[in-house]
Amino acid sequence: MDPLVMAAGTALVTAIATDAWQQARAGAVTLWQRVHPERVVAIEAELEHARAALLAARRDGDVRTEDALADEWRGRLAQLVAADPDVLAEIRRVLEQVWTPLLPPSERPAVRHITMHATATGSGRVYQAGGDQQITGP
């Protein structure tokens, strides 16, 4: 799955648990409006249901439900990209301009996305890390 889609799914689910959840919902609706306008009403209802489930899970300390909701919305976003690959640019915009700013600062590192490319030729080695990296050995 595209790392951007993974970050967006996490950010969406985290953002719907905030007081500004209607902005988070509006960002998601714009994506569906572009690809599947006939599904907008259903998506709005599903987001409200997801919010209720998420708030209950957080109240009960149920991290599995939160993880499952994030996986579900990552999958839904991936389906949008499969239906219209051009929506990926809109997902990036919504992630950066709508969902991430709604998150508490402590939640933002969990949704960052990193894209790295490297090429090694001959006997070259490439070491890349999106966070801490520790290399041991010769």
Rank of each mutant, 00 (worst) to 15 (best):
M1P: 15
M1K: 09
A7V: 12
L12M: 13
L12R: 01
V13N: 06
A15Q: 07
I16H: 01
A17Y: 01
T18C: 03
D19E: 14
D19W: 02
D19M: 08
A20F: 02
Q22G: 13
R25I: 11
R25G: 06
A26R: 15
A28C: 12
T30F: 01
L31A: 13
L31K: 10
W32V: 09
A42M: 06
I43S: 01
A45P: 05
L47K: 07
H49Q: 13
A50T: 12
A52C: 04
A52N: 09
L55R: 06
L55E: 00
A56N: 06
R58D: 07
R58T: 03
R59W: 04
G61C: 10
V63W: 04
T65S: 12
D67I: 09
A70Q: 10
A70D: 08
A70C: 09
W73F: 10
R74S: 13
P85K: 13
D86R: 04
A89I: 11
A89E: 04
E90K: 04
E90D: 08
R93Y: 00
R93L: 06
V94F: 05
V94S: 10
P101N: 07
L103M: 15
E107W: 13
R108F: 07
A110D: 12
R112S: 10
R112C: 05
H113P: 03
I114L: 12
T115R: 12
H117A: 15
H117E: 07
T119N: 11
A120S: 15
G122M: 00
G124T: 00
V126P: 14
Q128T: 14
Q133G: 02
G137Y: 09
G137P: 06
